[in-house]
């Protein structure tokens, strides 16, 4: 075949995609450097560990949201689903007094089940993802309050429970680096999610759905099934987030959760995942989540009032997406 056509921009977007990740990453580095120069307290082991610990819950939720967003959908229910899963863990462990592993599995299964419901509403009933998950967000918020009787459920009877997030398996081997388990969980979830996205059929269809859903359907793929599967996996990861936050607070706080979905989506967007679907990375999302918590931590160390932190985060979201738009325009 003659090839006078366009050998021009062969690998362009791929380089640019890496460029965006690089942009987010260098943004993160710049923030870390700036805060280190501004305050000697920033670059302390203790503070770095605190940042990572603070990232763990939002990071896991953001990874959950990443999957759905790559399909071109959205999940507004990740925050309240997290709380719902925490409450379920509370019911299993504290109300029923069942062993810890049952609580862990139960919370994750609850998340998966809710994801299945969201996915089914979206794929089978054709309700737009925004509406379907907005509804689920409110339903789960209400259910958490109903099940718990609006009161926190404490895990005082399950001694190992707070070790999920707060203990340090690394610290028991290397006492100098007391990396909290919650951070390990975050990394584990990230590794698994990255693997699923790049190496499994589920991951391939996640990108394909966001890229051109009709084309996937015409290729003979059962798109409803895969879409539901993506929402189910997202739900399962929310279950993990629920365990993390409950473990950190040693309680399931039923009123918590709403608002977390926005932080999660912010991390996804800062990390370069396109809200219109088809592209995105777990690494980017991790970086996005880190940027948010480094900002919060650094500004707090510099004694910037908390109210201003959200202003800065908001600005960063807009700048991050604008940078992406500029890149595309330059293409």
């Amino acid at each position: 075949m003659t090839d006078t056509a366009a050998p021009a921009v062969k690998t362009g977007p791929r380089i640019s995609g890496a460029f965006h990740r690089l942009l987010a990453f260098s943004g993160l580095i710049a923030l870390v450097v700036a805060f280190s120069l501004a305050s000697p307290n920033f670059m302390q082991t203790q503070n770095i560990l605190a940042i990572l610990q603070a990232t763990s819950v939002n990071g896991v939720l953001a990874i959950a949201a990443t999957l759905v967003i790559i399909t071109g959908g959205i999940d507004l229910s990740v925050g309240t689903l997290m709380t719902f899963c925490a409450v379920i863990a509370g019911v299993i462990l504290t109300y029923w007094g069942l062993p810890l592993p049952v609580g862990i599995v139960g919370a994750i299964l609850a998340g998966t089940a809710c994801g299945l419901v969201s996915g089914t509403i979206i794929a089978k009933m054709k309700v737009p993802p925004f509406i379907a998950t907005l509804g689920m967000m409110l339903i789960l918020k209400g259910l958490s309050l109903v099940i718990s009787g609006t009161k926190p459920i404490y895990f005082n009877d399950t001694p190992g429970f707070n070790q999920i997030a707060l203990g340090s398996a690394v610290g028991s081997v290397f006492p100098a680096v007391p990396l909290p388990n919650g951070v390990l969980v975050l990394f584990a979830v990230a590794l698994v999610a990255a693997f699923v996205l790049s190496k499994t059929a589920l991951g391939r269809y996640t990108f394909a759905l966001g890229s051109n859903e009709e084309a996937v359907r015409l290729s003979g793929v059962n798109i409803d099934r895969w879409k539901i599967a993506v929402y189910a996996v997202t739900g399962a990861i929310c279950g993990v987030a629920g365990l993390l936050i409950a473990s950190r607070l040693n309680s399931a706080q039923p009123a918590l959760g709403q608002g977390y979905e926005l932080d999660a989506i912010a991390a996804v967007v800062i990390g370069g995942t396109s809200l219109s679907g088809g592209r995105g990375t777990v690494v980017g999302t991790l970086i996005g989540a880190l940027i948010i918590s480094v900002l919060a931590n650094g500004l707090r160390i510099l004694s910037v009032p908390q109210e201003w932190q959200t202003v800065v985060t908001g600005t960063i979201i807009i700048l991050a997406v604008y940078a992406d738009i500029l890149r595309r325009r330059a293409l």
């Binding site: 084309a215 290729s219 088809g278």
Partner: peptide, 8 residues
């Protein structure tokens, strides 16, 4: 109509 997934 081209039924391709542009990002793949």
């Amino acid at each position: 109509e081209l039924a391709l997934m542009r990002d793949l």
